[in-house]
Computed example of a mutant assay.
Amino acid sequence: MSRFSSIDVVHLRWFVAVAEELHFARAAKALRISRQRLSQTVIDLEAELDTKLFVPGASPTQLTDDGRELLAAARELIVQADAAGQEQTSDRPAALRVGFVPGVTVSKWTRIWADRFPETPLEVLALPAADQLSALREGWVDMCFVRLPIDRDGLSAIPLYRELPVVVVPKEHPISLFTEVGLADLADEKMQDGGDIDGAAVLFEMVAAGVGQVVVPHSIARLHARRDLVYRTVTDAPDTEIALAWPTAHTSDLSEEFVGVVRGRSERSSRSPSGHAEPARNSGAAAKSGAAKKSGASKKPTAARKSGTSGKPAATKKKPLKRRGR
């Protein structure tokens, strides 16, 4: 067995891209990942193997002897991995791989899928928000629940719901006396940048330490809830939109079925690839049934559908409490 066989095949592919291109920026562009992420992967590989794969400081980029050895081995390992993947695919039923970013709850949809398609595995993968686009473009997943905006080139995306923003503050902070606030109420506060939701746990630790408050989507505040912090709705800050996205070129019957599940279509919906209408038993019976309905049979009232696609009632805004003396 090769001493390189324990290396993640994805990282081997990335190394091969750099080794063949001998240019980190061009390789990163071809892989559709950031140059920083590609460089870090190579650094991690060198640390794992305890050797240098590229000549330090060389311009243009050059492989070391160990780098050339890894390149030859990596090509063979990738071929073997692709062959093994094809064999596994032929031996098992088709599966749908769905990713989701922090704050998105997928349990409702996975339960419906399991009930409706018990023979088709649904694989769900939790992803950092920073990787949502790479996961789709590099084929880690077939579909992904993402936070908009994203680069939609080559992607199909259906918006699902919006999240209210909230400000996270220490439990004893004066803002905790409000049920909701506006940006004007935060004008004199020390604020942190809440753009990196993957680092929310660290941001919340900084809030607790008195470094500054932070505005994040409601689901992120709920996900990282702490007893020493509270969060309040910010009425006039931009909200966040969650969407389901997938590569347009790879649209399949499975992806269409999952879209139907997420959108709440019935199992026999005409828009579902597997859906079909119940055939009429005979035209005479149908005619009699229609006549009976017209002759006075009253229809039962239809239960009103819940609003929103997230399966939760829409949040109602409350009037802010008056500030107490500070």
Rank of each mutant, 00 (worst) to 15 (best):
K293Y: 14
G99R: 02
R97P: 00
G195W: 09
N282K: 05
T309P: 06
Y231L: 00
G199Y: 04
P247T: 15
A74N: 14
G212C: 02
S252E: 05
P118T: 03
M143N: 05
A249T: 01
P128Q: 12
G182R: 12
A72G: 04
T235D: 06
P320W: 04
F178E: 00
S2I: 01
W140M: 12
T110G: 06
L186P: 04
E278I: 14
T302N: 13
A28W: 04
E21A: 10
R92D: 06
G210M: 09
E69K: 15
L136T: 05
G139T: 08
L70S: 14
D193W: 10
R68Y: 02
R326T: 04
V42Q: 05
R32K: 08
A221H: 04
V207P: 03
L38V: 07
R26H: 02
G139C: 06
A81K: 10
G308F: 09
A201V: 00
G210H: 03
A72P: 01
S298E: 09
S272H: 01
V262H: 08
T251Y: 11
R147L: 10
P313R: 03
A187Y: 00
A58N: 09
F145K: 08
G154P: 14
E180Y: 00
R3A: 07
S307F: 08
R37S: 14
R152D: 09
G290K: 10
E241P: 09
A304N: 05
F204N: 06
A83E: 15
W113D: 11
K29H: 10
A287L: 13
A187H: 03
G195L: 08
T302M: 12
K300F: 15
S134N: 11
G199D: 13
K108N: 12
E69Y: 05
A84W: 13
G67E: 08
A297V: 09
E138I: 03
P279W: 05
D185H: 13
E180W: 00
S283H: 01
L321W: 00
L22G: 02
A47Y: 10
V18M: 06
Q88T: 12
V166S: 10
D142P: 08
A221G: 15
A30I: 01
M206C: 03
F145Y: 11
Y231G: 02
A314I: 03
G85F: 07
A74Y: 15
V167D: 03
S270G: 02
V234I: 02
T120H: 11
P174K: 05
A304P: 04
A126E: 12
Q192P: 04
T233Y: 01
K294H: 13
F117P: 00
M206N: 11
I220W: 08
V79H: 03
L164M: 05
K52S: 14
P121W: 08
V101L: 03
K322H: 09
V207E: 07
A135M: 09
A83C: 12
L77V: 10
A25P: 00
A126N: 13
L203Y: 15
V166D: 09
A285M: 11
G139R: 07
A315N: 00
S298F: 01
I33S: 07
V55S: 06
R222S: 13
